[in-house]
Amino acid sequence: NGETSPTVSMAELDHLAHIISKSHLETCQHLREELQQMNWQNLLQDEVESYQSKPREVMWQLCAVKITEAIQYVVEFAKRIDGFMDLCQNDQIVLLKAGSLEVVFIRMCRVFDSQNNTVYFDGKFAGPDAFKALGCDDLITSVFDFAKSMCLLHLTEEELALFSAFVLFSADRSWLQEKLQVEKMQQRTHLALQHILQKNQREDGVLNKLRCKVSALRSLCNRHTEKLSAFRAIYPDVIRTHFPPLYKELFG
């Protein structure tokens, strides 16, 4: 009868999908047209070596700057979703503090070259070896594996947008004050994602695969925090004086 649940109609799901998709497209760091025109050029060997020979703290700082830039776009994405700005300020902060890096990892598949196992970084496409100086090869390998597995799903921009919003509206984050409202938004986003996947005639397994990605994202973010703690123990002054303030606020 056109209803997916007593409270959400197909029209509402289409509208939510449209809003979230529009927010996503307006706030992607690299527009689709840019990606199509981009010369997907890999780093030259001497450029890889140049990144590898950077002092550990300099490479950490460079990556912190890049992550922070990407996060600012995610904040803008969240702000353009009506339901997000309807939440109390505490919960907006909680959701972004916990979920913004996860969305950055999701968005990474847009600028990932599966065939070469490279990602757009600092103007060119870089493989995991370019990040050697960070001293966290295991985390880098996992991040690349995650991007590759996301690419294998061949999601459309709309599906990617809805999955990003679904992750952002995680109702199980600690310190939420209006958990029920977040839960409601997450359920609606989930229904919209399900609806769009059905509309796009994707096989049933895609939604299950995406649900599995949620725990993979959490694991990546936890490991980022662990690596940052280990780095902080050795270079506390570098973080204090050279890392972007927003990065310190989110992960400090």
Binding site: V75, N90, I93, V94, L96, L246, E249
Partner: peptide, 17 residues
């Protein structure tokens, strides 16, 4: 939480660009 996340709070307050 707002006090500890002044930059994030500020970004959320700014009108969408």
């Amino acid at each position: 939480l707002k006090e500890k996340h002044k930059i994030l709070h500020q970004l959320l307050q700014n009108s969408t660009s």
